[in-house]
């Protein structure tokens, strides 16, 4: 399997990135190289092996439903690139 520019463009859109034509070419070549390398995993028979998403053998970690102070609004919004007194601002979200 090898990676085409169209694949990379699709992924860029999925990941909300915008690549210049030059970046697209470089990225396609570099990603393809890594993908080729990664494909060596195919030679391993992993049937019957449980995927391991966590190394820790832990389960059932909960916190009690007890209120703690939230951030003051100004502290919450302090890092916002664009805001008014109450909210974060973004270009118009249409629909919903």
């Amino acid at each position: 399997m090898s990676l085409s520019k169209a694949d990379v463009e699709k992924v860029a859109s999925l990941a909300r990135l915008k690549l210049t034509d030059e970046e697209l070419s470089t990225m396609t070549r570099q990603l393809d190289q890594v993908i080729q390398y990664v494909q060596q995993l195919e030679e391993l028979d992993t049937s019957g092996v449980q995927p391991m998403a966590h190394t820790a053998d832990l389960a059932n970690v909960f916190a009690d439903d007890l209120l703690r102070a939230s951030l003051p609004r100004d502290a919450a919004l302090a890092n916002a690139p664009k805001r008014d007194d109450e909210c974060y601002l973004v270009p118009p979200v249409l629909g919903d």
Binding site: V38, L41, E42, T46, V49, P51, M52
Partner: peptide, 15 residues
């Protein structure tokens, strides 16, 4: 499945 899930399985073999 080919990449992510496969890698998680190999991860277990490594462990």
């Amino acid at each position: 499945d080919a990449y992510y899930v496969k890698a998680l399985k190999v991860r277990r073999l490594i462990r």
